[in-house]
């Protein structure tokens, strides 16, 4: 193959290589701009990823829903309708196998169905919040301390939702962004 042809093919490849991350950014930005914002009560823990670095894993308080049928299988994709409760935090109003036509909803994955309690346990796909490596563990400790000296759980994640997809924008402890809270 001639150098010219190799070069043209490489340029095409380079454009694709640039487009993939660009498209990821674009998609998330559109959710951040046009999506509706919800607060999810949560609890941070501190693991890490070999390529992306340290993150805090978020254990959401909202992780199960009472149901009266047993069609739910592990790893199944489900859609959860979200509304705000009286204190302004997100709560589930229904769960569906197919995307609902109206209202705000978010996709999640079934962990398991417990027949004894008749509840479906699920995991949200926005459970990783990346932090500077020195702060991730401190964040977990800070949450634990805040938990001890203030009212019931005051840690929440700010999540933008648009057509079932969600972007986790920040995590707050007592209404202060977690990165700032840790620095204090």
């Amino acid at each position: 193959m001639k150098t010219k042809h190799i070069f043209i093919l490489f340029i095409i490849l380079a454009i694709v290589q640039l487009c993939i991350p660009a498209q990821m950014i674009n998609h998330r930005e559109s959710i951040l701009k046009e999506g509706k914002v919800f607060k999810f009560k949560t609890e941070p823990v501190d693991p890490s990823d070999p390529f992306k670095g340290k993150y805090i894993y978020l254990n959401y308080e909202l992780r199960s829903f009472k149901v009266d049928n047993v069609v739910w299988k592990p790893s199944q994709d489900i859609y959860i309708s979200i509304i705000n409760d009286s204190l302004g935090f997100a709560k589930a109003s229904a769960i569906h196998e197919e995307a609902p036509k109206n209202g705000d909803f978010v996709m999640a994955k079934v962990d398991r169905y417990s027949s004894a309690k008749e509840v479906v346990r699920f995991t949200f796909p926005f459970n990783e919040f990346y932090m500077e490596e020195s702060k991730a563990y401190d964040a977990e400790v800070a949450h634990r301390n805040a938990q001890r000296d203030s009212l019931p759980n005051s840690t929440y994640a700010l999540v933008y939702i648009k057509e079932g997809e969600a972007v986790l924008s920040n995590v707050f402890i007592n209404d202060i962004p977690i990165a700032e809270f840790v620095e204090k």
Partner: peptide, 28 residues
């Protein structure tokens, strides 16, 4: 290529499905 996808996932807190990430990387 790997680092740029990883960093974008990090900035937007895109949860890590490690196998999908590695697959995208390999194919690119």
């Amino acid at each position: 290529v790997g680092s740029s996808i990883a960093l974008v996932s990090q900035i937007y807190n895109i949860p890590g499905n490690l196998s999908t990430y590695v697959l995208t990387w390999i194919l690119l």
